[in-house]
Amino acid sequence: MRDRVVPVFSHGFLFLWALLTTLPLVWVAVSSFKSDEEILTDPWGLPATLRWDNWGRAWNEAHIGRYFLNSAVVVTGALVLTMLLGAMGAYVLARYRFPGHRVVYFGFVGGMMFPVFLALVPLFFVVRNLGLLGTLPGLTFVYAAYSLPFTVFFLTAFFRTLPSTVAEAAMVDGCGHFGLFFRVMLPMARPGLVSVGIFNFLFQWNQYVLPIVLMQGEGAEKRWVLAQGLTALAVNEGYRGDFSGLFAGMTIAIVPVLAGYVAFHRQVQRGLAAGQLR
């Protein structure tokens, strides 16, 4: 008897949590097609017609399109920078011995222990003094810098697992240190690079506190990233009463990331789990 009841309970509970996870997202997507009227009168009702103009308004007038582009530019640049510099540093730390080796390694890895809040105030002034406050390059450098500790830690461990026989053979064949790295080791490290790359992408795409601190000042709102633009939209649209525009903006922010995740869910889950178990 008990063995028949418990699976039903399991199914019910699992299904309930799945509903709790998905219904809010469905609600946002459905609301993005409704008129403000419909949103105000019945939160659960369906739209009478599909109002795509909400999406157009969010993209153009609320500048979600621009913020999306800014996010894409910053994260692309930061990701390339993180992976390149992280792989370079990690490779040298993994396969070369030199004086100060341990200091450099623990200097990088130690960065994982500090809460970013501790750095917030001085970071604001460092970036301002470099003239990079409120600029996309400034945010790109900062994202890359704060991604380095985990990237170096993860890739150092990964490069250590690669067989040294291949490296020795390449050296005998006259391959230099640089050629060895770019032509032999980097391609061999691809699985590790993919995992840590996915982790870094989500870390950088989902940043909130760094952009709101660093993208201040005159004219900075043109260079806001999605996270910032969306919260500003939530505050402003609340006053103006353009609820449908807000829901459309949120849907635009959610759909690409969720679609990318569903397509690559195995790699994404593996990448994030690797980040957790560091």
Partner: peptide, 22 residues
Amino acid sequence: LFIVTFLVPPLLLYGVFVVSPY
């Protein structure tokens, strides 16, 4: 030469934006 060219850029970025603020 290899060790220096590979370590200096990441260290520079890390030093300016992470170590010095902390």
